[in-house]
């Protein structure tokens, strides 16, 4: 036994340097980026870049806008994704396979192509508007694009798989007999869903939603194109600060705040998760 343990430790010893290198390699750039925000042009420590942020809080307002859009997009995703996953759970295995394939296909199509495809579908001259006008439901085209609605639709399309797949997997794992047991004890369908099914899918729902939210924060292409540039997101701002006028220190300060906000949200999620799990 001791020999086995020793051997294991020995084996681990072989990979330790690799792990250290990997950790360093992955995290050094991040640390460097973080440090940059406290680095003054003359050299040495400074908080001027942060002070600048709070003096002219427009970047913070863009950040707030990003958070708001991300929250709404996440909620939209949940509102679409949960019923979708639930519906898929009830399908025959064959139909489930097809449904999963449909959900995954967007993964294989370039985000740019997908985004432009929405223009074809939802534009003023797009298929949906032509159909609406042809059926006489509206006489003027409906503005689906170049506003927050467009951004929502685009984001939902891109991010839905990230929510639906883990949720669907979690739902598949739920034993039908639990619902049957609840029914046999006299619970009506509503109660069965609220007290048994929903709580059991809650961890997957929460982690899926968190993932979607964090991905939303970094969205770049979709808001730029489907939002008609009128929905400022933090990633577009960072692109400007890094690539147009290299103010890496300023970009670092903005990213650091974004990172802190994200970590706070993650911590809140963990705390909530632990409380629910206890």
């Amino acid at each position: 036994m001791a020999a086995i343990l020793a051997e294991r430790r020995h084996g681990f010893g072989f990979v330790t340097p690799l792990l250290v290198v990997m950790l360093a390699a992955f995290n050094l750039p991040i640390l460097y980026m973080l440090a940059l925000g406290f680095w003054s042009k003359q050299g040495g420590f400074t908080t001027e870049h942060y002070a600048a942020l709070f003096d002219a809080p427009i970047y913070l307002r863009v950040l707030a806008n990003t958070l708001r859009i991300s929250v709404v997009a996440t909620l939209v995703n949940v509102a679409i994704g949960y019923p979708l996953a639930y519906w898929m759970r009830g399908l025959s295995p064959r139909a489930q396979f097809i449904a999963v394939a449909c959900v995954i296909t967007p993964f294989w199509i370039s985000i740019l192509v997908r985004t432009y495809a929405w223009i074809v579908v939802l534009g003023n001259n797009g298929m949906v508007n032509r159909l609406l006008q042809w059926t006489g439901l509206t006489d003027a085209p409906v503005s689906f694009l170049y506003n927050e609605l467009g951004v929502m639709i685009g984001m939902a399309n891109v991010l839905l798989p990230f929510l639906v797949l883990p949720l669907f997997a979690a739902m598949l794992r739920i034993d039908d007999r639990l619902m049957q047991a609840a029914a046999s004890m006299g619970a009506p369908p509503r109660t069965i869903f609220l007290k048994v099914f929903l709580p059991l899918t809650m961890p997957a729902l929460a982690s899926g939603a968190l993932l979607v939210f964090i991905l939303c924060l970094g969205f770049y292409v979709t808001p730029a194109i489907l939002g008609g540039g009128k929905v400022p997101m933090i990633s577009n701002l960072l692109d400007f600060l890094i690539n147009q006028i290299p103010r890496w220190e300023q970009a670092s300060a903005v990213s650091t705040i974004l990172l802190v906000v994200t970590l706070l949200i993650f911590a809140a999620y963990r705390a909530l998760d632990r409380k629910v799990g206890a």
């Binding site: 223009i119 534009g123 003023n124 001259n125 170049y146 730029a224 194109i225 008609g228 009128k230």
Partner: peptide, 20 residues
């Protein structure tokens, strides 16, 4: 009346052609 702020050069002609 400002419908779109474009980022990629190709967007402007496309938006005009699509009558957006």
């Amino acid at each position: 009346d400002i419908s779109v702020l474009w980022k990629a050069g190709a967007q402007a002609p496309q938006l005009l052609k699509d009558n957006e």
